[in-house]
Structure formats: structure tokens, C-alpha cells
Simulated scan of single mutants.
Amino acid sequence: MSEPVTQSISTHLLVDAPWEAYRRPYVRDLAYVLACPNVLTQWLDFAPHQNTHAIAVHSANFWLRQFEKYQERLSELDTTNAYQALTRYLLKRPSPNRLGFHFEGLLSFWLEDGFARKLHPYETLASNVQLFSGKQTTGELDLILYNHAENLVEHWELAIKFFMGSAPFEPVNWVGINSNDNLQRKMTHMQTKQFRTVWVDTESHGQVKIDKRYGVIKGRFFLPKNIINFVYPSWLAPSFPMHEWCDKYDTSTLAMLDIRDLRAAHYIEWFTKREFYDGRPSALIHSENGILKTGLYFEGNRPIVIYPKQHDETDDKL
């Protein structure tokens, strides 16, 4: 197990963001999905008495290698008409404007396109496999892959998460805009629901047995703005994108922000910033009784989340 890492507020914010080198928004998103490490250095078992299967995670080096091997193709997508293949692929998928589906679409494009170009060994056998209990749908498996390098059938379950952290920074303390969503709850659900499956029926490859399971959890985390030093727990990847959040009712900390430097983010910008939204009326700052609305903002190019430390039920609707 790796040792905890301590970093100051000036260094824990992501400096190396290779996705920012790309001009076209979907290419930048795709580069982000590849270059961003898994949030986890190891899987944490929150259901030790439920007889579940072992779950693995890909290392940060694994994802960096995938990004590097795909860079030439990313440049092609960013500078030629090949971009149309990416946009068509994403927009024909169900609910392409929802963040989770967008993440899944980007990763699925890389899997199919990269395998066809022999840039990785993962052949997609099935995706979005429905689970049933009798005639009732009980869940869905994201990706069933065949790893030709290791001759294994792998089940990858995906999650894109944008969580705000608070002390003591355990998985249960990283929560979403909807405070019922937290990292521990998500991992427990994946382990006790989707990852229990052993056999999968596929349309093109018949019934296959899962040999290995991977949790693929990416996104961004946000630390309290007034924190000075942050000790990374051993389970949290030190290179995971880390930014700041501020309590919407903390007037003294909010006073440190110049509201003129803030821009409300469009929903898709939880992935990467779109400069063409700068200056638009929809990006104007709105407040209620002088309190900024909960959500994502940009302070220049730096993401910052305004979030209620004391839960406000109205924010669950965002």
C-alpha cells in the first residue's frame, strides 16, 4: 500500500492537464477521459461479509500509457475531418448530453477505435448489458471486454464523479451536488450489484464468463478553499484532478473571490472548459439574496464549486 502524500494548496491543484492542448471540445474531453487517472490506487471493500468478487483498478501509469499511445489519433481528430467520426459516434448514443453517458461514450469510442487501430488489446464484446430478475430489469453492466494480451474476459464498470471533500477525507466524506451521492456509496453499489455477475449473454459472442473486474472511476475532486495542506489518503491517486470548493454560506471566504472573475459553467464543462461560453448571457453570475447558486464556476481557467456545507434540499435538483 502506498504511503499518504502531503501537498500544499499551491501544488495539489492539477498543473499538468494534457487535454488542454486540444482545440476541439470533444477531442479535449476524450483526451481528458484517457489521461485522467482512476481516482483509486486500490479497491476498498465496503461489503466484506457479502461474498463478493475481487475488484481491480488500473494504475495511473496504465491510463497515461493509453493516452500516449492514442496521441497521434487525438491530433488527427483535432485537426482533420476525422472529427466527424467522433461527433457522430457520441451524438447517436442515448442521452449524449448527460455526463455519465458522455463519459461512457468517450471511453467506448476509444475502445472500439483504438482496438481497430491495434493501439490496445481490448475488444468490446458487449456494452450496456441488461440484468434481469425474472422479467424485471435489475441493473446494467457497462462494458464486457476481451483482453487479447492476457486472454481474459473483463468487466469494466464506469463512473464519472465530481465530489467535494471534507475532513477526515474518507470515501464517505467525498460527496456530490446531491449529498446522497458519495464515493463510498457508489463503490458499495458497484461491488454488491453489478460486480456480482459471473456469466453474461452477448449477441455476437454467446455466453461468456467474466474472469476479471475493474472499477473505472474518474472525474474531479474539490477541496475546501481554505485548506492549506492536504494529506492524500493511500487509496487516492496523487495525480487525480484536484480543485477547490467554497461553502456558499461562508461569506468571509467568498469575499476573497472577485465575482467579476467568476463565470458560471455550462453543465458539460465539468469535463473541460469551453471558451466559446465566455461572455455569453447564460454565463452571467446569478445569486439569490446575495448568495451564489450551487454549481460549478470558473475563476479564470480554474474550476471552483460553490456548495452548501450545511445541506440545502433545493440543491438536489441541480
Results as ranks from 00 to 15, higher is better:
57 V>S: 03
93 R>G: 15
289 N>V: 03
12 H>K: 01
118 K>Q: 15
111 L>I: 14
284 L>E: 12
251 T>G: 03
120 H>M: 04
58 H>A: 03
148 H>V: 04
96 P>K: 06
290 G>H: 06
89 Y>H: 14
260 R>N: 11
199 W>L: 02
81 N>T: 14
30 L>D: 05
278 D>C: 10
255 A>L: 03
24 R>S: 03
203 E>N: 09
144 I>P: 07
101 F>Q: 13
55 I>G: 12
258 D>Q: 10
127 S>Y: 10
136 Q>E: 10
292 L>T: 05
221 F>Q: 06
222 F>Y: 14
292 L>S: 04
187 M>L: 15
261 D>N: 13
18 P>H: 01
88 R>V: 02
150 E>N: 13
185 R>S: 12
303 P>R: 02
2 S>V: 04
45 D>W: 01
59 S>L: 09
14 L>Q: 13
258 D>S: 14
195 F>L: 06
229 N>G: 01
299 E>G: 00
272 T>P: 00
186 K>H: 07
65 R>F: 00
153 V>D: 02
20 E>M: 02
157 E>N: 07
222 F>R: 00
306 I>W: 04
262 L>Y: 08
118 K>A: 15
168 P>D: 05
239 S>Y: 08
82 A>G: 00
74 L>D: 01
135 K>H: 12
19 W>P: 00
43 W>P: 10
157 E>M: 02
27 V>L: 07
282 S>F: 08
36 C>V: 11
206 G>I: 03
20 E>N: 02
142 D>I: 06
126 A>S: 04
248 K>M: 08
173 N>H: 12
258 D>K: 11
248 K>N: 13
116 A>K: 02
53 H>K: 11
40 L>P: 12
117 R>I: 00
80 T>P: 04
309 K>L: 12
48 P>C: 06
272 T>H: 07
9 I>Q: 03
279 G>W: 06
66 Q>E: 15
237 A>V: 09
186 K>E: 08
42 Q>S: 11
282 S>R: 04
162 F>D: 04
180 N>R: 13
152 L>E: 14
140 E>F: 10
255 A>S: 15
11 T>D: 14
62 F>H: 09
291 I>N: 09
285 I>E: 07
169 F>N: 07
68 E>I: 10
122 Y>H: 13
92 K>R: 15
147 N>H: 04
287 S>H: 09
7 Q>Y: 02
46 F>N: 00
236 L>V: 02
10 S>K: 02
37 P>V: 06
159 A>G: 05
317 K>P: 00
110 W>E: 08
134 G>V: 13
253 T>Q: 15
72 E>S: 12
264 A>W: 15
245 W>E: 08
303 P>F: 07
125 L>S: 09
37 P>W: 03
54 A>R: 07
68 E>D: 14
300 G>T: 07
228 I>Q: 13
253 T>V: 11
12 H>V: 11
147 N>R: 07
124 T>A: 10
98 R>H: 14
149 A>Q: 12
186 K>W: 10
